[in-house]
Amino acid sequence: MAPIATGVAAANRELVVVGVSGDGDSLSIGLGHLCHAIRRNVRMLYVIADNGVYGLTKGQFSASADVGSRSRRGEPNLLPPIDAMLLGLSLGATFLARGFSGDKGQLVPILKAGLAHGGFALVEVISPCVQFNDHEGSTKSFGYVRQHELQEVDADFIPSREEIRGQQIPGTATEVKFHDGAAVRFRAVPPGYDPRDRRAVEAYLRDHSGHGEIVTGLLYLDESVPDLHQLNGTPEEPLWSLPYERLCPGAAELAQFQARLR
């Protein structure tokens, strides 16, 4: 899905591009594609609905399943998981967030912030699979996530056109502005959590996942990186809309070009 979205974004930079996929798609068969879309900083919102299993094919472990997590039939997963957030950090992702499908209050502002981001916004949504992965022993069940979630990084999304109202967050609040004037304001629960400090964020995530905790929230943000179009120096107008007359050099130039081929 990521490269199709990349093509869409390449052709029409005015579109809002949203990709929704599973953990099987994103972390196995499409893992390479996800990695490279992150590297290219394609401007899009990419959502992984992460249930730790291949739901559609009836419950095989996916690459996000935790070691020791049990399938519905009771078999343990033996392979180490791929953590989409840590992966993103190592690839130079510019927007990383994790939410929980059971917590709309937190997820909605995250998704809005992702849409406003000037590059590739990766949002992993822990989405327990009620059919194949919501049982005792699973680390992606509603119960498990509710117990182990650490809502460490709280974010308020402030759309550009709305006035920044109330909600003054005391002390450690950090505001990061998006290109279109919207802003995200982080309220870091642990003292000193800075979502713009890649190394610190990585250390923090590693530390907590080591304890079986699921850190949610807007975890990392960097608005300074050029996106696919900026990197390629394309015009403001979408490529698809450029008039043909501007694209075709014409007969006279073709003759000129061929003068060198004689």
Binding site: P3, T6, G7, V8, A11, N12, H36, G233, T234, L239
Partner: peptide, 26 residues
Amino acid sequence: HDYLIVQAEDELAALSMVIGANWAGA
């Protein structure tokens, strides 16, 4: 630059990008 050339990560990605771009009208 009135063009955008992507050196893709593999041929699945290359054709996917081409499909996405054509779908969007380029």
